[in-house]
């Protein structure tokens, strides 16, 4: 009898072990969730991510707002902050406007009129409207008319740079980012303010991908 039971038990165990589940993916999906943009999300790499963009622009904004050369002027200085002279020399692909737009918008809100931002990116649009006004195609608007559009006192320049390192044995990789921001005096060509943000990330893929 015991051989019979042994046979049945072995049969059950082996057959249970040999059943395959690989043909069916029955895993449930995951409902959309809002993630904290200041925290590393579920999907991460070693490049520039949302939390980095927020941290770097917040720090630069605080730094600029505490700079007396910028903030203690009798007449609020005119500044161009866009990505025209902000270059990416790193190995991370990034839309630079995410950095410069966030910086400009938050500065504009926090400065409360103590800094004036010039939208040079949209100069063509402004010129077209001015032409229409001057030609009488449209009226003069309700605010004022000026001889020319605003000239700027300072302009943002900067660079995103990176240094990659890899361990050929463990295949761990790390990327150090250095992001520099500077304001250049558009008459003298001097730097009136400089700021820098650095961070380094390292990661190692699952061995199946190394």
């Amino acid at each position: 009898m015991k051989y019979f039971l042994l046979t049945v038990a072995a049969s059950t165990l082996v057959l249970a072990g040999c059943q395959s589940t690989s043909t069916i993916d029955n895993s449930a999906g995951r409902a959309t969730v809002y993630e904290d943009t200041r925290s590393p999300g579920k999907v991460q790499g070693v490049g520039v991510e949302s939390q980095d963009i927020m941290a770097v622009t917040d720090q630069m904004m605080r730094d600029m707002l505490s700079n007396p050369q910028l903030m203690n002027r009798e007449v609020s200085p005119r500044i161009i902050i866009d990505s025209q002279y902000f270059t990416n020399e790193s190995s991370s692909r990034i839309n630079k406007n995410m950095l410069t737009d966030r910086l400009r918008i938050n500065l504009n809100r926090a400065a409360n009129g103590r800094l004036t931002f010039v939208g040079r990116e949209y100069a063509d649009m402004v010129e077209k409207e001015r032409d229409l006004k001057r030609m009488g195609v449209v009226d003069g608007g309700t605010i004022r008319s000026t001889q020319a559009t605003a000239g700027a006192d300072f302009r943002l320049v900067g660079r995103i740079m990176s240094l990659d390192a890899m361990d050929a044995q463990s295949q761990e990789r790390s990327r150090y980012h250095q992001i520099t921001f500077e304001l250049v005096d558009l008459e003298l060509g001097t730097y009136v303010w400089s700021g820098m943000y650095e961070f380094k990330k390292s990661a190692q893929d699952d061995i199946m991908y190394r």
């Binding site: 690989s22 991460q44 790499g45 070693v46 990661a203 190692q204 893929d205 699952d206 199946m208």
Partner: peptide, 26 residues
């Protein structure tokens, strides 16, 4: 976007390492 994501704790990669699944499972 997927290539740049670090697969440090991925379920399918774990399965692909096991005896009972092919590498192509990942």
């Amino acid at each position: 976007e997927v290539i740049e994501t670090v697969y440090a704790d991925n379920e399918n990669a774990t399965k692909a390492r096991s005896l009972w699944h092919e590498e192509g499972r990942k």
